[in-house]
Nucleic acid binder design. Structure first.
Length: 288
DNA sequence: TTGAAGAAACCCGGTATGCG
DNA sequence: CGCATACCGGGTTTCTTCAA
C-alpha cells in the first residue's frame, strides 16, 4: 500500500513525478468544484486520499496551487479567498449605469411573508462557497463562524433574531470532531443566552454519525488532547461530504420552512415591482 | 531549488498548573 | 479556593526562514 505523503516518520521528499501526479489530482478537484478556497482544495485532496491531513501537507497543497495558478494551469478565478476584502463605496458610471444596477439587484425580501425565519451556520470557509450557492438563492443569511464564534458576532446575529421575532430555525454545518461538536453547542448556547425569549430551534445538520456510516465518509484519527470528553471514535471533516450532498442538505433545511403559495405570491409581486421600477426609471436622468 | 517549519494576523473553549 | 496564564484543540491564508 502506498504511504500517504506526510504520514511517514521519515522526511521523504517527493519526487518530481509524485509532485506532478499530485498536481494533476489538484487540477481535477478544482476543475470539478471551482470556485473553492485553498483550504477547501486541501480537504478534498485528503478526502480523495491524495495527501495526509497534516500541517505540512496543507502547505504543500497551498504551494502547488500557487504554482498552478502562476503557471496558468488553473485560472485565478477558480480559487477564492474570503478572508481578505475590499472596502469601497458603491459608485456608478452615470445614471444609466445606476439604473441598470438598481433594476438588476432589486429583490423582494422572501421571508417577510413566511411564518418562519432561517439562518445557516458554517464552521469554516471551505464549505461556505458550497452552502452560499443555496442560501443566496433563498435569501437566507449564511454565518461563517471559523472555529469558535466570537462574542461580537453571535451578539449581532442574536439581535437580528430578536428583531425578526418569528420562530427561528438555525442549521449548523461542521466537522464531526470534539471541537466541532463543542463549537456548534457553543453557538447554540450563547445565542440562546443573548436571545432568551426568542423561539429558537437549533439543529446540527452535518456531520452526523448516521451520515458517516450511510455515506461511508473518510475518517481521520481523533485528537485526544482537548475537548475529547465523551467523544467516541474517529473524526470526519465536513469536506468529506460531496458538494452535491451538502447542497441537498441545505436545500432541504430551507425548503421545509417555505410555504409555496406565499412564495409564489412574493415572486409575483417581485416581478411586477421590478417592472414598475424599470418603467419608473426609464426616463430617469434623460432629458424630458 | 524546494520542502519543511515558523511566523503573522484574528476569533474562540477547555484543562492543567501555579500563584496569592 | 479562585483567578491568571499557558497550552492544546477548532477555524484561514500567505510570507519568510532554514536546511537538505
Amino acid at each position: 500500500m502506498a504511504e500517504l505523503y506526510g504520514s511517514s516518520p521519515v522526511k521523504a521528499r517527493r519526487t518530481q513525478q509524485e509532485i506532478n501526479s499530485l498536481k494533476l489530482g489538484l487540477v481535477d478537484i478544482v476543475e470539478a468544484e471551482q470556485p473553492m478556497t485553498v483550504r477547501g482544495v486541501f480537504y478534498r485532496s485528503v478526502a480523495a486520499g491524495l495527501i495526509a491531513k497534516t500541517d505540512p501537507s496543507y502547505k504543500v497543497i497551498s504551494r502547488l496551487l500557487l504554482q498552478l495558478r502562476r503557471d496558468g494551469v488553473i485560472p485565478y478565478s477558480w480559487i477564492t479567498d474570503g478572508t481578505r476584502w475590499q472596502i469601497k463605496p458603491r459608485s456608478f458610471n452615470g445614471m444609466e449605469d445606476a439604473r441598470i444596477a438598481m433594476v438588476r439587484m432589486f429583490r423582494r425580501a422572501l421571508w417577510n411573508d413566511q411564518d418562519a425565519y432561517v439562518e445557516v451556520f458554517a464552521e469554516k470557509d471551505a464549505i461556505a462557497g458550497i452552502l452560499s450557492a443555496v442560501t443566496s438563492e433563498w435569501d437566507v443569511p449564511l454565518n461563517v463562524v471559523r472555529g469558535f464564534a466570537s462574542e461580537t458576532f453571535l451578539w449581532s446575529v442574536a439581535q437580528d433574531i430578536i428583531a425578526i421575532d418569528k420562530p427561528t430555525y438555525l442549521y449548523h454545518f461542521g466537522d464531526h470532531d470534539p471541537s466541532g461538536l463543542l463549537s456548534a453547542q457553543d453557538v447554540e448556547r450563547r445565542l440562546r443566552g443573548f436571545a432568551p425569549d426568542a423561539d429558537i430551534h437549533f439543529k446540527r445538520v452535518a456531520v452526523t454519525t448516521a451520515q458517516i456510516t450511510k455515506w461511508k465518509l473518510l475518517t481521520r484519527p481523533t485528537k485526544t488532547s482537548t475537548h475529547h470528553r465523551g467523544f467516541e471514535g474517529e473524526s470526519v471533516e465536513i469536506d468529506a461530504i460531496s458538494a452535491t450532498r451538502l447542497r441537498q442538505l441545505v436545500t432541504d433545511c430551507i425548503e421545509r420552512h417555505i410555504d409555496p403559495d406565499r412564495l409564489d405570491r412574493v415572486r409575483g409581486v417581485e416581478a411586477v415591482e421590478r417592472q414598475s421600477l424599470e418603467i419608473a426609471l426609464a426616463t430617469w436622468g434623460k432629458p424630458a
